[in-house]
Design a protein around this nucleic acid. Sequence first.
DNA 1: ATTTCTATACTGACCGCTTGGTACAATTTT
DNA 2: AAAATTGTACCAAGCGGTCAGTATAGAAAT
Lengths: 199, 199
Amino acid sequence: MTNKRQQIIEVTAGLMESNGYENTKLSDILEASGAGKGQFYYYFSSKRDLGLAVIDYFFTSFNGEILSGILSSNEDPETRLNEMLEWIVSFHQSKQAKCGCVFGNLALEMSEHDEGFREKVNEVFKIWAEKLQSVLAEMLETSGSVDSAEVEQLAQSIVAMIEGGILLMKNNQDIRILKDMTKWIRYLVGSYVASHSIP
Amino acid sequence: MTNKRQQIIEVTAGLMESNGYENTKLSDILEASGAGKGQFYYYFSSKRDLGLAVIDYFFTSFNGEILSGILSSNEDPETRLNEMLEWIVSFHQSKQAKCGCVFGNLALEMSEHDEGFREKVNEVFKIWAEKLQSVLAEMLETSGSVDSAEVEQLAQSIVAMIEGGILLMKNNQDIRILKDMTKWIRYLVGSYVASHSIP
DNA sequence: ATTTCTATACTGACCGCTTGGTACAATTTT
DNA sequence: AAAATTGTACCAAGCGGTCAGTATAGAAAT
């Protein structure tokens, strides 16, 4: 039964979402998933091993929802960007603005003392920014000269803006901060696209 | 001698800057500051007590450098904003983009399970945003209608953008990400001010 | 002038508790 | 019977924090 393995991953994902990695203790995991120690160490070689598996699990879900989902739909690029921002806001609203972004949380918690975590999280941000870049490129399709390096920077900065908005939102426990941030992202993108479109 | 107390605070500040709060162990603090356990508990009632004192210490330094310093100088508001952004970039450059922002780090690490930390960090962000708001207001002085609530949101979002840029910078260990972010902040502010100025 | 007292500054062994991880016997599945 | 799976007792290490006691220096008492 790899069911149990998957169950442990999903339960831990829930715990890590609100407590981070270090603060999700093995005992919590065992209790919440109804597994024994032996069972755990049969499926995972260490807590770290599980942690990395949980990141993969989060990415799969994030990828399906945002990257392969919303950002890859048939809508026009502006709509897709908007839908992504709205999805993020309502996602955090449903969590009462308390959890933050798992990837952002792990980035700050783990990046310093665990290369494996750092690289895995980094990959998520990288893929996200790449996808965003292609959406921005679509918006600029009718433009004359497009500096693709600049668009790349913009895409990456949008990811950073979202993460920053989530950080402040979480610390303030107020969804409005993230909502405002998305407004300025739209403003920035709109302003950039407008200034680059051929009259 | 309250020297020792101050020394412990400063040494811990250095440790917390690169390791966060939980990962700065009491044993590290004692070793680095050359203090014994008894000495420590003579000056501080708990590790948490020290942690809160360290935040105050960081804020004092941040306040002097940025809030009362750069942002309150006699230069015009655009220059002050620029100088702040440049200061932040070169600060993190000097730390090889590895430490991140103490306040941002603590926000994500502690906000969930310690109200005291959360509120203290929140206060920092709040004061920062307020100061930034007044600088933005100065830029808009010649404008006709200024929506001060909107300017407040912009100021807060700029703080979020900086924090997000630092987060990604740290996880990527690449200062360029933060540098790019500051570029977009300037672009956003410039664009906003331009669109609100009377021709 | 000498002794006694007391407040401050500091020591480091020790404590209770939690942690991630292991050993291994018992059970279930094949 | 053999192999895969799982419960449980256990471990060493590390943690923050406590505590009984020491050193010292200046004030107070003699």
